[in-house]
Design a protein around this nucleic acid. Sequence first.
DNA 1: TTCATATATAAGCATATGCTTATATACTAT
DNA 2: ATAGTATATAAGCATATGCTTATATATGAA
Lengths: 123, 123
Amino acid sequence: MLIYEVEVEVEGGEVVEELSNIADNLKLLGDKTRLAMLSLLKEREWCVCEFVEIFDISQPAISQHLKKLKAQGIVKENKRGQWVFYSLHIEDKAYIQAVLDQMPDSKTILSQLNKTQINVVCE
Amino acid sequence: MLIYEVEVEVEGGEVVEELSNIADNLKLLGDKTRLAMLSLLKEREWCVCEFVEIFDISQPAISQHLKKLKAQGIVKENKRGQWVFYSLHIEDKAYIQAVLDQMPDSKTILSQLNKTQINVVCE
DNA sequence: TTCATATATAAGCATATGCTTATATACTAT
DNA sequence: ATAGTATATAAGCATATGCTTATATATGAA
């Protein structure tokens, strides 16, 4: 007969991110478009208009994805001129960094999106 | 003036898991219940009836979560007697292993689920 | 100012998701 | 066989999600 019994006691001072918060963050990675965006952002910052050209969805759809990522602190924005550039902001989220470390590079991501070349000008 | 131009060419023989497949797998981690299950499964196999006691959802809900995880090859089942035990099956999914490596241990997970003790008998 | 470009927001819609209850199936013991 | 326990499946429902089109806002150029 097996009895599994677990006594639980966790140190109080510990900073443990809530399980549901981690899940909420990971949920954002569970979308093909956002996962590709974040994988591309490993390499450099990208402009919204570049994403609009890369992905086969509307510009509002792009903005909505970025809004969600920004709301959870996974990306940050940088406005320059009429353009908005996004970059990764995951220093305190090791589980996201861990995933992105495993993702292929930008070339491979773009090839899977059937984009052999992108050509966007941001002055 | 900045021109971002990327020429894409990827080796053909490479085994690259499709971006959407990775996203589909990660999507399963984006649920509090499933993320907790997988985190607990890092330590040992768990019986369905244990999960039923740990989580505050119905037994069918537990079964449905496990079915999804099994369908994507993230867990495998092992029937013994009238019980079904589940264990991790992520050897070929580095991005999932990477996330679970970052998750707290079973004690911490259980404490976040407000379970100070579980006591299930599987003969 | 006026226009063009870049981005964000609002509203609506179709589908996906996670849960419930009810029921079916499987295995054990009497 | 019959009953009890463990698990899975079916059906239905409320909410979440990702997209669209339409419109608003912001910036730069003429």
